[in-house]
Design a protein around this nucleic acid. Structure first.
Lengths: 351, 351
DNA sequence: GTGAAAGCGCTAACAC
DNA sequence: GTGTTAGCGCTTTCAC
């Protein structure tokens, strides 16, 4: 295989424009201290020759790689890809992240990293050393993995933590979980529901706690009891089955259930149907995340829409801004969740 | 922002092991001509220091970037991401491509490129120049875009063309479209169907023709007529609606329909229901691709499973093999499609 | 405001 | 088998 050498390099441009390499470099990087006339002349040569700087070379000498690394949990991501249940978390990250990166001449790369693994540190260090990204985006549950956070801090790489309260380092972004939990529960309360069950997510994800808090707050504010109405899930369909069975097996069973993700809501739907209950007439269901299955369920599920694309987009923008020397925003960035009202909610049967 | 310099470089390793840079380089690249004892000593230093070579530096001096670029159609991909209908084409590519890349120490990058655009050439050249990938994976409809193919050939970059017969350049891979069209039609014939409609995809995709040919062949082989049973679609839901209306509006309407993708099959289902037809009792439907919506439809659709992950995986492997100087396989690589029998097919009503 | 020189981390080519 | 030299394409540093 022939050695690939760049067809047109900064040298060619410099020669063509009759200036030094340095001046071309300044034009490429939009640095000041270049006379407009000079800059125009150089730009003309760049356009004429179709010159595009080599990322590798820029990375070699300069301080930027124009690369942002998005880290996802290996096991869970691969499992979701294999399951083919339509989870579009990665797609939404790509949508928000790639497009925003492109605006700034950056690229986004994906990397899968194990959480439950002593190799985390080695794996991540390897990726960082090989790629030398200008920034890293952490997704749950990595966002709160202190091993990862500390490593990134040590390497002095700007990073965003999606779905984390992350008080210490990095840019923390949340997706309105608590408020969404509260609002969706309130929506049910307004429909007349008094017994509203909640299926929680795994403790490993901080956002599980937030979603639950929202539900608790709304119930409390309305003077409604939550005793026995909380069932623990772990985001899996199976856990949703068990949780729903527990909830619907109650003496005084709930007339509505909020599930912490779509899979568990689907399980909820299945159990309800199995019990001969009609959704939403006998049981209202609200799910979290709004991955495609929510819309495709029968009936289509009303769901909290997790703003993954928008959040990733903001994460990219903040990282690049930090890389440009701007201050990292203080405190938490909150990207509010949406709510898509479909056909799985109605007033309670007795109302 | 501090200048990021590599913490531990090849120099450190060389110093630690007391050998020359070149020897370390040889060990990294698993070149022969290194005494086992030497190689062990160097490897020990590498492990001890946690050395990982910089991709950028490898790219700069060597002939490889360890990067494979996957190209997708910008407009269509973004539209699918936005629509959130669960299309997992990108996820499956990532699944097959990233994992295979990782086996060889490569990375996969995604790039969106416009097809219907005079900028294709400029856009792609820019990406190639900036990234200098070791290989490129083309997906439909890019796989048959001669502008792209010629460009890649000119740059001497190994590339794979997924879903293309691509006689001239690059590694062509198909996903068993014709046989799948034939087999699924035959499946319906065996169930007793005699009037089987077919909704085609857009001509822009060569695989549309293959799928259709498969249907035609099966019908022909069985001595069944196809006149009037072909309706043109373009992969969109709307086109599926129109095509199905045409087909079901026929005097002697089909008792089964094969749709060239899932969206059109969903449209088919909707039209059938609107007409008061029960699927599969009154109408059997088989769809192509088997994206998540097929499984989530009501009834779940029997579908041809497009082996995207496996095909991408093979594409990566062949590209790396080509890059290593091995001959590119002659002719077409065919990765057979699967078939998932769900609940949308049954014997025809009169049978 | 512009240019010249040095060097980033690594590999190719060649010497020994 | 192993070391040395040169250089990839760019930015940094420092002159002017």
């Amino acid at each position: 295989m022939a050695r690939i050498r760049q067809a047109v390099t900064i040298k060619h441009v410099a020669a063509d424009a009759g200036v030094s390499l340095q001046t071309v470099s300044r034009v490429i990087n939009k640095e000041p201290n270049v006379r407009p006339q000079m800059q125009e002349r150089v730009q003309a040569s760049i356009d004429k020759l179709g010159y595009v700087p080599s990322l590798a070379a820029q990375r070699m000498s300069g301080s930027r790689s124009y690369l942002i690394l998005a880290l996802n949990d290996r096991e869970r991501t691969i499992a979701e890809w294999r399951a083919r249940q339509g989870s579009d978390w990665v797609d939404q990250m790509l949508l928000g992240g790639m497009l925003k990166c492109a605006e700034f001449g950056y690229r986004m790369m994906f990397e899968l990293v194990d959480t439950h693994n002593d190799h985390v540190e080695r794996e991540l260090t390897a990726a960082i050393t090989a790629l030398q990204p200008d920034g890293v985006i952490l997704t749950p549950p990595h966002s709160d993995n202190m091993l990862i956070v500390n490593l990134l801090e040590k390497h002095n790489i700007p990073f965003a933590r999606i779905g984390s309260a992350g008080s210490n380092a990095g840019i923390a972004l949340t997706m309105g979980d608590e408020k969404a939990g509260e609002d969706s529960t309130r929506h049910l309360i307004e429909l007349g529901h008094k017994r509203i069950g909640f299926i929680s997510g795994p403790g490993e994800y901080v956002l599980s706690g937030w979603r639950q808090s929202g539900w608790e707050r709304a119930m409390q504010d309305a003077g409604l009891p939550t005793d026995g109405l909380l069932a623990a899930g772990d985001f899996s369909f199976e856990s949703g089955l068990a949780a729903t069975e527990k909830l619907l097996g109650l003496q005084d069973r709930p007339t509505a259930i909020v599930a912490s993700n779509d899979h568990m809501a689907m399980a909820c739907l299945q159990v309800a149907k199995g019990l001969g209950l009609t959704v939403p007439d006998d049981l209202s269901i609200i799910s979290f995340d709004n991955t495609p299955i929510a819309a495709l369920a029968d009936p289509p599920l009303s769901a909290v829409d997790q703003p993954v694309a928008e959040t990733t987009s903001q994460a990219v923008e903040l990282i690049i801004s930090a890389k440009n020397g701007n201050a990292v925003p203080e405190g938490l960035i909150n990207v509010p969740a949406g709510f898509v009202d479909r056909a799985s909610t109605a007033p309670p049967p007795s109302a």
